[in-house]
Nucleic acid binder design. Structure first.
Lengths: 128, 128
DNA sequence: CTTGACCCTCCAGTGACTGGAATCCTTATC
DNA sequence: GATAAGGATTCCAGTCACTGGAGGGTCAAG
């Protein structure tokens, strides 16, 4: 499989796949012409990475998760710890964003949005 | 006012304030010794920026908002447009994160988290 | 033999800072 | 006057996870 095929299969851009090789997440073989050759296991790993990234895991988390995935002697507790920590971070982020949204929502609703200069949004930002 | 004073007043790190000068958001005067000299209007602008950033506005949005703030002939509609667009982006982001959270939450709850290797989180990431 | 679709590497840029090195200025104390 | 602490300066590099682009090699079809 060339990089284009595996890109289509996994939905990851070829650039991203090359980058993942660069940082050691996958190690595809090479053809005599220098092209990367991906086996099914490589494609599988990349799909795994794509899904982990889609869940918001950092690259380093992905590296850890991949290592755990390939370790038959892993403890599921280790996987759960990574996921739980990540879950907490997501929850924090959601709370932050919701606070922003609530404030913004109120400000936007208070603003007439016409051609006059008077604006409660700016007033709030500039509050003395 | 030196950078340290304005940093304390606004809560922005000195590094950040220098960076904001670098990208042209503020233009403090200079003392004969080369030190930045911040007037009240500079401190005020920086506080404005700090609050806009805290609401998640991008630097470019902040630049726009600051320009609108300083333009007595602004139309509040222009401010509202920036804020509304940003609000939509935040709402999208929240929805994304909530979807991640829901998936992760379920996976985490399904995982025993013991010393056995069997793990539904990895199973989901690796789904064939 | 040419065309177009692939593939390769390498370098630079993104956003919004942040850390660190090396140096200079000010203020207080001895 | 020396010294030390604390604060100021500049400049360079790094963060994260890619992404874009230049410049060039390879392959299959017509």
């Amino acid at each position: 499989m060339n990089i284009g095929d595996v890109s289509e299969r996994t939905g990851l851009p070829a650039k991203t796949i090359r980058y993942y090789e660069d940082i050691g997440l996958v190690r595809p073989a090479r053809d005599t012409n220098g092209y990367r050759v991906f086996r099914d296991t490589d494609a599988h790993k990349l799909a795994f990475l794509g899904r982990a990234r889609a869940l918001g895991f950092s690259i380093e988390d992905c590296r850890t998760l991949l290592a755990l995935y390939e370790d038959d002697d892993r403890a599921s507790a280790d996987v759960k710890a990574v996921a739980t920590e990540h879950l907490h971070q997501i929850e924090d982020k959601i709370a932050q964003l919701q606070a922003m949204r609530d404030t913004l929502n109120e400000l936007v609703h208070c603003c007439a949005g016409d051609n006059r200069p008077d604006c409660p949004i700016l007033k709030d930002l500039a509050r003395h």
